[in-house]
């Protein structure tokens, strides 16, 4: 019994890293503007589309490099056309602006790149490997492409965590998120900070889009991966990079385990069909967290004087 559970756990954790990566994009922008960027999911889609289509004309490394340029250009456009006009507005107004960006990008992506299903071939090994065959009968089945994806994500996450937590950029980000004008008044270049953060979030979206795209194919539903990031954020806290990582792992492992462990229990005890637990488990977990610890595991507790 232990073998399959361990296998599920590992599979879940590897998927969880991918959730973390998507959630990370949200956290970056939330930290720098206090805004939930609804467009993060569609940015993942847009980035994946760019890579998929560009790779039809160029070798993969060049296609990826070009996609990075596309995402930076996109960040610049969003900063220049949208954010710059909304300095010192309420968070809800910026949120609405990201909603607009979402639907624009969704359509624009189709206009530029087309609306078929495309595939990204990163040349990663496809055949599953078995490990620890001496310990467990039959060994543990692991998908090497997931392992590589997880590794790339881990490197990315650590690099970002160091960059934003340790440097004074971190302090500047928190300052900007708290109060735009006050941040400007001490000489923090608001526009540059936003540009940088959106560009980094775009690149994070690119990596996430490539990993998910290689796994599921590049199609519209890719933007829905972002919805899975929501419970991750609630668990980890909207402002915490480590929170996004831990949250992603918990959700990834939790939902897979719930399917395997909880499923049979439900079937036996209540005579239910027992499937589909993976679909709702994350949200129920998030809901419970909202009741008990609304700021998430690592989020800042917001104290308001009344």
């Amino acid at each position: 019994m232990l073998g399959p559970i361990l296998e599920t756990l590992i599979g879940g954790l590897l998927t969880g890293v991918l959730y973390s990566l998507v959630a990370l994009g949200f956290v970056l922008i939330f930290k720098a503007s206090g805004v939930f960027n609804f467009a993060q999911g569609v940015m993942v889609l847009f980035a994946a589309l760019s890579v998929a289509r560009l790779s039809e004309f160029f070798p993969m490394p060049i296609a990826i490099a070009l996609a990075v340029v596309v995402m930076i250009a996109l960040a610049y456009a969003i900063e220049f056309l949208v954010l710059r006009r909304l300095v010192n507005q309420e968070g809800i107004i910026l949120f609405m602006a990201t909603l607009g960006v979402t639907y624009f990008l969704e359509g624009f992506g189709q206009t530029v790149w087309g609306s078929d299903i495309y595939k990204i071939d990163l040349g990663m090994p496809k055949n599953p490997i078995f490990v620890l065959e001496s310990v467990f009968p039959g060994g543990l089945l692991i998908d090497p492409s997931e392992l590589i994806a997880a590794l790339i994500c881990a490197i990315m996450v650590v690099a970002l965590a160091i960059f934003f937590q340790v440097t004074r950029v971190g302090r500047a980000l928190r300052a900007v998120a708290d109060d735009h004008q006050a941040a400007q008044s001490v000489g923090i270049p608001l526009n540059q900070i936003w540009l940088m953060v959106w560009a980094v979030a775009g690149i994070v979206a690119l990596v996430a889009g490539m990993m998910w795209g290689a796994k599921l194919g590049v199609q519209f539903s890719l933007s829905l991966v972002a919805l899975k990031a929501l419970p991750v954020l609630i668990l980890g806290g909207f402002t915490s990079i480590p929170g996004a990582i831990v949250g992603g792992l918990i959700i990834g492992a939790g939902e897979k385990l719930a399917e395997v462990v909880l499923g049979p229990v439900l079937i036996r005890m209540f005579d239910l069909a027992g499937g589909g637990i993976e679909n709702w488990f994350a949200y129920v977990l998030a809901l419970m967290f909202l009741l008990v610890r609304p700021q998430g595991l690592f989020g800042e507790k917001i104290i308001e004087r009344v």
Partner: peptide, 21 residues
């Protein structure tokens, strides 16, 4: 500022450090 524009989540020390940016 008229309505006190501090970085509310940060400590007094960090707020003042932000002035050194």
């Amino acid at each position: 500022f008229q309505n006190v524009a501090l970085f509310k989540g940060m400590t007094a020390l960090d707020n003042i450090m932000a002035g050194r940016t």
